[in-house]
C-alpha cells in the first residue's frame, strides 16, 4: 500500500520520473481552468448569467467575502492566491471519491509545496504592502528578544499547514483503503463521504490560515501607547 502518490511513477523521462502527484495535479488544474474557460468565454454584461456562471460567481464572491472579512480590505491579489489555494485543495480532496484517483493533496510533497508557497507569499505580500523595513521590524516586536521566537513561529506555521493538510487527506485515503479490505462496501462509502466533508473543511482551513498570515503581515501596526507618568 502506497502512502503517497509520489512513488507511483507514470512516465519516466530519462532520470526524471513523472509521478501520479504531478499528473493528478495537472488533471485538477485542467478541470479548474477548463471549467473556467467554458463558463467565462462569452461573458456579456447585458446577458443574464446561466447556472454555471452563477455557480462560479457565487463561489468567487463567497471567497471574496471571506477574505474581505479577514483582511478588511478588497485586495484582489490576496484573493487570487488564497482563492486558488482553496479551489485547488477543495477539488483535489473532492476527487478522492473517484476510484483510482489519488488526490495530490495526499502527497506530502504537494502540501509542502503549498506551505512553502504560503511561507513565500506572506513576506512578499508584507513587503509589497508596507516595505521591507516594516516587514522585518515585526520580527522584533514587541522586543528584540522575541526575534528567534518569531522566526520559529514563522516557519512552524508552514510546517503545521503542510502536516495538517497532508495528515488529514492521507489518513482519510488510508483509512478508506483499510476499511475497503475489512468491509468492502458500507464503511468505505461512509468514510469517503466523511472524507469529502473533511476535505472541504481542510481546504477552507488552509486558505483561511494563509489569508490570516498574509493579513497579519500586511496589517498596519497598532499605534504606540502613550507613556505612563512616573509615580
Amino acid at each position: 500500500m502506497q502512502l503517497t502518490p509520489d512513488q507511483d511513477i507514470i512516465l519516466r523521462l530519462g532520470e526524471f520520473g513523472l509521478n501520479a502527484t504531478i499528473v493528478n495535479t495537472w488533471i485538477v488544474m485542467a478541470l479548474l481552468v477548463g471549467g473556467s474557460v467554458l463558463v467565462t468565454r462569452n461573458l456579456c454584461p447585458d446577458v443574464p448569467p446561466n447556472r454555471w456562471r452563477t455557480l462560479l460567481e457565487t463561489i468567487v464572491q463567497m471567497i471574496q467575502s471571506q477574505i474581505g472579512e479577514i483582511t478588511q480590505t478588497s485586495a484582489r491579489h490576496v484573493m487570487y492566491f488564497a482563492g486558488t489555494l482553496f479551489l485547488f485543495i477543495a477539488l483535489s480532496n473532492l476527487l478522492l471519491v473517484v476510484p483510482g484517483f489519488a488526490p495530490p493533496t495526499s502527497s506530502l510533497s504537494t502540501t509542502v509545496a503549498l506551505a512553502i508557497s504560503v511561507l513565500c507569499a506572506v513576506p512578499l505580500f508584507g513587503i509589497a504592502s508596507g516595505g521591507l523595513g516594516r516587514y522585518l521590524r515585526h520580527f522584533i516586536e514587541p522586543s528584540a528578544v522575541m526575534l528567534p521566537f518569531n522566526i520559529i513561529s514563522e516557519f512552524s506555521r508552514g510546517i503545521s499547514l503542510a502536516i495538517r493538510l497532508y495528515g488529514n487527506i492521507m489518513s482519510g485515503a488510508v483509512i478508506a483503503a483499510i476499511l475497503l479490505g475489512v468491509a468492502p462496501f458500507f464503511f468505505p462509502v461512509v468514510m469517503d463521504m466523511l472524507g469529502l466533508l473533511t476535505g472541504l473543511i481542510q481546504a477552507y482551513i488552509f486558505a483561511i490560515l494563509a489569508t490570516v498570515y498574509i493579513s497579519s503581515a500586511t496589517a498596519d501596526p497598532p499605534p504606540p501607547s502613550p507613556p505612563e507618568d512616573a509615580p
Binding site: T21, I22, T25, W26, M29, L32, V33, S36, V37, T40, L56, V60, R76, M79, Y80, F81, G83, T84, L85, L87, F88, P104, S107, S109, T110, A113, L114, I116, S117
Partner: peptide, 18 residues
C-alpha cells in the same frame, strides 16, 4: 514542480476565472 504548478494555476485562474 508542485510550486510551479501552483503558481501557474494562480495565473491561469486569475486570467480565466477571477
Amino acid at each position: 514542480a508542485q510550486i510551479a504548478n501552483f503558481l501557474v494555476l494562480v495565473w491561469l485562474l486569475k486570467r480565466f476565472l477571477y
